[in-house]
Structure formats: C-alpha cells, structure tokens
C-alpha cells in the first residue's frame, strides 16, 4: 500500500478493501499524532545527534559544549565495536530460534488447535502480563548453579561436573528468546490464521505432499507474519540490556548495557548519545534493507 502521491483518478485499489480514500480535510486527523511524533520523537533524535557531537572533555558537572566533535563516532566504534557485534549476534540467534519455535506454535494454534484455538492464544499472551523483569529474575533462579536445570544437565553429562548455565551466553540468549517469543508468535499467528484452508486442500488435490503444500502455499502466504515477527523480535533484542544484566556477567554485556551505564551511571552523555545513534542507524538500515528484500512494503 502507501502511495506517496495521490492520483487524480478515483483510487481503484480501494474497491477491494477499504473504502475509497477521500480527499479533503481528512488529513487533519493526522495532525495531533504527527505533532506528538515531531515534538517527542524527531526533536529528541535531533537533540541526541547534537549531544553526540559535544566535546567529550566536558562532564556532567561543568556542562558540555557543542563542538561538532565528529571524532566521537570513531572513538566509540573503536572502543565498543565488539559490543555491537555481540548484540547483533545475540539478537540474530534469538530471532532465528524464536522463528523456529514460534512458527510451529503459531501453526498449531491456527490449524491444529480446533476449538482450543482461542484458549491457546490466551495462553501465549498470558505470560506477557506478568512483569518481564520478574520472569527474567525467575529464570535466574531456575538456571542457577544449584537449580534444577543445571543439576539435570550435569547428571546427564551434557554439562561438565562444574559446568554452569547462569552467567553464560547461553543463559542470556535463552532469556532473550523467552522474553520475545510472543512478539514472534502473535504476528505469525495473525497471518497464518488468514490463510485460506481451501488453497492448502487444493494443493493436496493436485498431488502435492503435505510438505510441498506447506512449502509452496502456506509458507509464502505467511511471509508477512514472518517479516513483522522477525522485526518485532530483532529490534528490541538488539537494544535489550536486562537479560545480559540479570542472566549474564559483564562478559556477556550488550551495547544496551553500555548505553545505559554511560547515560545513567557515568553521565557521559556524548558517549551514550553516540552509541545510541550508531545503534539506531544500523538497526533502521538493516530493517529497510530486509523489508525491501523480502518485499512486503505493508509495514512501511
């Protein structure tokens, strides 16, 4: 959708779908929201950009001066590139595993649950309503060195005798996967639920195996859900710092931990702003390339 320039001819695309788009004063509805986004999103982002160019020799107490110090970016990248790499690797693995686990779940709810469909959907959303900090803290307890999971894995020799789960990358990624699972499952379900069952049956009638039917019919039709699910998982996972902080150690820290510490503990605003902007630019670029590649422009 989203045609930038309205055509003079009646909008033919609107015949199937929404009501014909009306010209006139309807855009006024957009004004309050756009003002809001302008004042509290665009303006702060510009402010963040200016902050990132402050002279780094200033500090919280003496104040900073804007010196267009672009070297901040080079310094930040040189010092923290490993945090960015780690963040994107963690977020990438998280997104992949969430897709692998979330797809069967969404598929089961949409096609196999029958009358239990809505109940299963409620179950997917329900854990979401208990504070995610509490849930992450209880993972900390579950994965602890004297906890049941570590005990079991040691007993079956998956982990060595003194092996740990807590404070490893595995724990941090497991926490990320857990926390962002609903963000993957719900969009997947939404698009799988719309798939017309008759198309799948038609594939079967034309002698395709269930797997081929899935690959050629169901999967392509669920692609919009895959796109929004992966985005809704990947984006927050990149910037998360709670899982690394609770389930990991400084060795597992992600770029979010650094930004948070620079901003709130060290009051090193130029560094925090620089890191934030780098993160934002990388994520937005990745998202745009990805959305273009997969070819669903619906989101934009």
């Amino acid at each position: 959708m989203s045609h930038g320039v309205p055509s003079a001819a009646p909008d033919t695309a609107a015949v199937d779908g929404a009501t014909a788009r009306r010209r006139g004063w309807g855009w006024l509805l957009l004004v309050p929201g756009m003002l809001y986004l302008g004042v509290f999103f665009v303006f702060p982002t510009v402010q963040l950009f200016l902050t990132s160019l402050y002279d780094p020799s200033g500090n919280y107490f003496t104040g900073y001066t804007l010196t267009w110090h672009f070297a901040n970016y080079l310094d930040a990248i040189r010092d923290t590139w490993h945090l960015f790499v780690r963040s994107f690797i963690y977020a990438g693995i998280t997104t992949g595993v969430c897709l692998l686990l979330g797809y069967p779940l969404a598929y089961a709810i949409a096609f196999k649950a029958g009358r239990w469909k809505n109940f299963m959907l409620v179950l997917v959303i329900a854990p979401f309503f208990t504070s995610f900090l509490l849930r992450t803290i209880s993972w900390h307890t579950i994965l602890a060195d004297n906890g049941p999971v570590t005990d079991f894995l040691r007993t079956v020799h998956v982990l060595p005798h003194d092996g740990r789960l807590l404070a490893t990358s595995v724990a941090v990624i497991a926490g990320l996967i857990y926390n962002f699972m609903p963000f993957m499952t719900l969009p997947l379900f939404a698009s799988l639920d719309k798939v017309d069952h008759r198309l799948i049956e038609a594939a079967g009638d034309l002698y395709s195996s269930p797997f081929t039917g899935f690959r050629k019919v169901t999967l392509p039709l669920s692609l919009p859900g895959v796109v929004s699910g992966t985005l809704l998982t990947f984006i927050p996972a990149c910037g998360d710092y709670i899982n690394a902080e609770i389930l990991g150690t400084p060795k597992q820290y992600m770029v979010g931990n650094r930004i948070q510490a620079a901003f709130l503990t060290e009051h090193n605003y130029p560094l925090a702003a620089t890191l934030s902007l780098i993160l934002m630019v990388i994520v937005v670029l990745m998202v745009i390339v990805y959305v273009r590649r997969v070819g669903t422009e619906e989101l934009l």
């Binding site: 930038g4 984006i235 930004i259 993160l279 994520v283």
Partner: peptide, 25 residues
C-alpha cells in the same frame, strides 16, 4: 487508511520509525 493526501508515505515512515528504534535509544 481513509484519506488521501500528499505526504502519506512520509507519515507512514514517521509512524514506523519509533517501532524500529530500540527502546534504549
């Protein structure tokens, strides 16, 4: 959805950007 006007593309982008911004940013 219901109205057509100049700049819809930009508006859609501006709505999308906060979702593509990590919370920490």
């Amino acid at each position: 959805v219901r109205h057509s006007f100049r700049g819809r593309g930009v508006s859609n982008l501006l709505v999308f950007l906060p979702m593509a911004t990590p919370e920490v940013v």
